[in-house]
Computed example of a mutant assay.
Amino acid sequence: MAYKITDACVSCGACAAECPVGAISEGDSIYVIDADACVECGACAEACPVGAPQAE
């Protein structure tokens, strides 16, 4: 299951900088993860200061 960024996102970009496959991009109000590109490594969750990325 891919990771998904919840509404807790503060749009800091920490997760996008850590994604090894570039699956995270800035959305309208929060960052979003391309589920098809996500390799479920958890790097985004570890980098996020507010715990917004969650495994689906």
Rank of each mutant, 00 (worst) to 15 (best):
V21E: 15
C19K: 09
E46K: 06
C9K: 01
A17E: 15
G51N: 05
I5E: 01
G13I: 08
A37L: 15
T6E: 02
A45D: 12
D28A: 11
C19D: 12
A45F: 04
S29K: 11
C38K: 05
C12I: 05
I5Y: 01
C19I: 05
C41Q: 13
I24A: 07
D7F: 03
G13K: 07
A45H: 10
C19M: 14
A47I: 04
V32M: 06
V21Q: 11
G22S: 11
P53M: 03
V10R: 09
P20M: 08
V21A: 10
C15A: 11
G42V: 11
D34I: 08
D7I: 00
P49D: 11
T6C: 00
K4P: 02
C41K: 08
A23M: 12
C15I: 12
V39P: 09
C12K: 05
I5P: 00
D36R: 06
G42Y: 13
I24T: 07
I30E: 14
A52D: 09
I5S: 01
M1T: 00
I5R: 02
I33F: 04
K4F: 06
A45L: 11
A23S: 13
G13A: 08
I30S: 05
A55R: 00
S25V: 13
C44K: 00
E56V: 00
G42R: 10
G27W: 13
E26G: 07
D28H: 09
M1F: 02
E40M: 08
D7M: 06
E26K: 12
C41A: 11
C9V: 06
V39I: 15
A47W: 07
D28C: 06
G22M: 14
A2G: 03
M1W: 01
A16D: 11
E26D: 10
V32E: 09
Q54K: 08
Y31M: 03
A47H: 08
E40G: 03
E18N: 13
C48A: 03
G13T: 07
I30K: 14
